[in-house]
C-alpha cells in the first residue's frame, strides 16, 4: 500500500473541479490509456485575464487524480504568466509530498497545464521533438533532460519515477544514464551490464561448445567441423566429412551451428565457412 498524505487522500476521495468546460480558453491533454494514466485539463479566463475556472478529467491512480485536483485548485485566480511558473514539484508540495514512484503524476499535471496555456496562446500543440529514448512510453531525450535538470534527478530510477522513461523493457537504461551524466556533467552508475567476454574467453567457449554440442551432433550424420580462426566476432570454420559435400551445409551452418554459438557463447557471433 502506498503511503499517501492526508491531503492526497482528501483530493482523491473528494476531488475538486472534476469535469470539462465547454468552449474552454485553454485545453491540454496528456498521457494515454495504454500508459495507465491520462489527464484532460480545461480552463476559462475571466475579464481580468486571470483563470476563473479550471476542470479536469483523469484516468489513473489515486495520486494522478489528486495531482489533477490540486492543479485545478492551484491555478484558479492566477494569470497565465503566474500559472506557467508552476512546476511539478509545486504540485507535489501542495499535496504534502508524493511517494517517489508517483512523481510522474505531478509531471503529468504540469505537462497538461503547459499544453493548455499553449492552446490559449494559439501555439500549435508542441510536437514531440528530439530523440525517442524510451520506446515503451514514448519519452524523448528532451523530456528526460528537463526532468533531470529541474528536479535534480541523479539515477535512472529517479528518471523512471518522474517521467516513466525506462519503466518498461529497460533497454534504454544505458541511454538514460548517458543523458543524466551529460546534463549533470559527471558519469552516472547505470545498472551493471554483464561484463563483455574477452576474445580469449570467447574462443575458449567456442571450442568447448563445438566439442561438447556441435561435433557430436554432426558426427551422427558422418560430418564434422573445425575451428579455423576467430576475428571480430566472426567464427571461421571448415566443414569436414559428409558436411563438406552436403547440399544443406549452409543451412546447418547458419541455423544450427551459428544459433548454438549465439545461444551458448555470445549473441553477436557470426559463423563463416572457409572453403577447403
Amino acid at each position: 500500500m502506498w503511503e499517501y498524505t492526508d491531503k492526497v487522500k482528501d483530493h482523491f476521495i473528494n476531488p475538486r473541479n472534476v469535469g470539462f468546460i465547454d468552449n474552454p480558453d485553454g485545453m491540454g491533454e496528456v498521457g494515454s490509456l495504454a500508459c495507465g494514466d491520462a489527464l484532460k485539463l480545461t480552463f476559462k479566463l475571466g475579464d481580468d485575464k486571470k483563470i476563473s475556472d479550471a476542470k479536469f478529467q483523469t484516468f489513473g491512480c489515486a495520486s494522478a487524480i489528486a495531482s489533477s485536483s490540486a492543479l485545478t485548485e492551484m491555478i484558479k485566480g492566477l494569470t497565465l504568466k503566474e500559472a506557467a511558473d508552476i512546476t511539478n514539484d509545486d504540485i507535489a508540495q501542495f499535496l504534502g509530498g508524493l511517494p517517489k514512484e508517483k512523481m510522474h503524476c505531478s509531471v503529468m499535471g504540469r505537462d497538461a497545464l503547459e499544453k493548455a496555456i499553449a492552446y490559449y496562446e494559439g501555439a500549435t500543440i508542441q510536437q514531440k521533438e528530439g530523440e525517442i529514448v524510451c520506446e515503451c512510453f514514448g519519452i524523448t531525450d528532451i523530456e528526460i533532460r528537463r526532468a533531470v535538470q529541474e528536479s535534480g534527478l541523479k539515477t535512472v530510477e529517479d528518471v523512471t519515477d518522474y517521467v516513466k522513461a525506462g519503466g518498461g523493457c529497460g533497454n534504454c537504461h544505458d541511454r538514460i544514464g548517458e543523458i543524466i551524466s551529460e546534463v549533470r556533467g559527471k558519469p552516472v552508475l547505470v545498472k551493471p551490464v554483464p561484463k563483455a567476454l574477452t576474445n580469449v574467453q570467447k574462443i575458449k567457449m567456442i571450442e568447448e561448445t563445438l566439442d561438447r554440442e556441435i561435433k557430436p551432433a554432426l558426427k551422427k550424420d558422418g560430418g564434422d567441423i573445425e575451428l579455423v580462426d576467430f576475428d571480430h566476432n566472426t567464427v571461421f570454420v571448415r566443414l569436414r566429412g559428409t558436411c563438406s559435400t552436403c547440399a544443406k551445409s549452409q543451412v546447418t551452418l547458419k541455423s544450427y551451428v551459428e544459433t548454438k554459438l549465439k545461444e551458448l557463447v555470445s549473441s553477436d557471433l557470426v559463423v563463416s565457412e572457409v572453403q577447403q
Binding site: 500508459c35 514514448g138 518498461g168
Partner: peptide, 24 residues
C-alpha cells in the same frame, strides 16, 4: 468513470487519448 476522460455520458468517450500511444 465520471472522472475519466475516456468515459462520457454513460459510454466510452471518443477521444484522442485512447490511442495506444505506447506499445507496452
Amino acid at each position: 468513470r465520471r472522472m475519466s476522460p475516456f468515459w462520457n455520458q454513460g459510454k466510452p468517450a471518443n477521444t484522442m487519448l485512447t490511442g495506444a500511444e505506447c506499445p507496452l
